[in-house]
Amino acid sequence: MSLLRRFGPGLVALALGACAGHPAAEPPLSVARQDYYLHCLGCHGEDGAGLAGQVPDLRTDLARLASAPGGRAYVLRVPGVTQSNLAPDRVADVLNYTVREFGGAEVARRIAPFTAAEVAEARAAPLLEITTTRARVIAGSDAR
């Protein structure tokens, strides 16, 4: 019997087994998505829906507030942003990620990207009257 006939079946079987291989390793999350998961998801949820009456719905509230008079400054000063231990550029990135991910492309086009400089400036002026400021911004949004 030739060598090929003797060892051929085993060679083919081994080759098939090698081709079965391992599934490709899952790629890591992007930095912005990871920062959302670690710093925002706990309250706002994986889908941004938040909690009715307690935690804002990022799918609707973020775009509405950010585009209202005084709203951009309010968004930059909410506790979740100012109390974050992320560097200003990472905060800006996760804000922009949030706008794109939950507001969609059309909303992202309307809202100018947040910048690290804006975040740093907002941190120097923490917002203490959160509820009243939010109500004022929403009233301004409703009046438009």
Binding site: R5, G8, P9, A13
Partner: peptide
């Protein structure tokens, strides 16, 4: 091509089962 001509599918299945 030589491998395909000399090795049958049945013998491959037999070897795979043995492994």
């Amino acid at each position: 091509r030589r491998l395909a001509k000399t090795v049958s599918r049945r013998s491959v299945l037999r070897a795979l089962g043995g492994f």
